[in-house]
């Protein structure tokens, strides 16, 4: 039986934004800390660390999930996407990111990485959301700057643009 001993560091391997990565983690290490401190992927932010605020949301095996409610060792072999994986190429933002910029959908930016990961996943599954559905989905995140209105506007705008030119990302 694979048993990882407390206090020792064990190799965890997974795919991060399409690239195979590996690093060492104690069994108790959260995926947030593994991403940030071991892999240097500091785009994922750490807010409440108990699953309430949504800042640390990443995509695990194709679904949005809280990385603070996940142990790094649980994700061995998984496929993980973080905010670093959204931009299609260096110097160009994704359609959703660009819409966030256009609509001023962020101020301090602390919650933004998590919200982008949730909405990116959501808009791929639901290309034509109603504002009500979108707000319900956004309910899994807390933003203390914007009042959410520009975030909703950015997401609806991004959804429209993605419907008009589906080949864009």
């Amino acid at each position: 039986m694979p048993r990882l001993t407390a206090g020792e560091r064990h190799t965890v391997r997974f795919t991060l934004n399409g690239r195979a990565v590996e690093a060492q983690a104690e069994p108790r290490m959260l995926l947030t800390d593994f991403l940030r401190h071991e892999l240097g992927a500091t785009g994922t932010h750490v807010g409440c660390e108990h699953g309430v605020c949504g800042a640390c949301t990443v995509e695990i095996d194709g679904v949005p999930a809280r990385s603070c409610l996940t142990l790094a060792v649980q994700t061995d072999g998984a496929s993980i996407r973080t905010v670093e994986g959204l931009a299609p190429e260096p110097g160009r933002l994704s359609v959703l990111q660009e819409a966030f910029r256009r609509h001023h959908a962020l101020q301090c930016g602390f919650c933004t990485a998590g919200i982008l990961m949730s909405l990116d996943n959501y808009l791929r599954r639901q290309p034509n959301p109603s504002e009500h559905e979108l707000r319900e989905f956004l309910g899994g995140h807390i933003c203390r700057c914007t009042g959410y209105v520009p975030i909703v506007a950015a997401a609806m705008d991004a959804a429209r643009r993605l419907r008009e030119s589906p080949s864009d990302v």
């Binding site: 990882l4 206090g7 069994p27 108790r28 142990l71």
Partner: peptide, 17 residues
């Protein structure tokens, strides 16, 4: 807010759990 230390067992079958 970090968990205290524990061993992690990835059960391969029901008997191990």
């Amino acid at each position: 807010m970090k968990p205290a230390r524990f061993d992690y067992i990835r059960a391969a079958d029901l008997a191990e759990a």
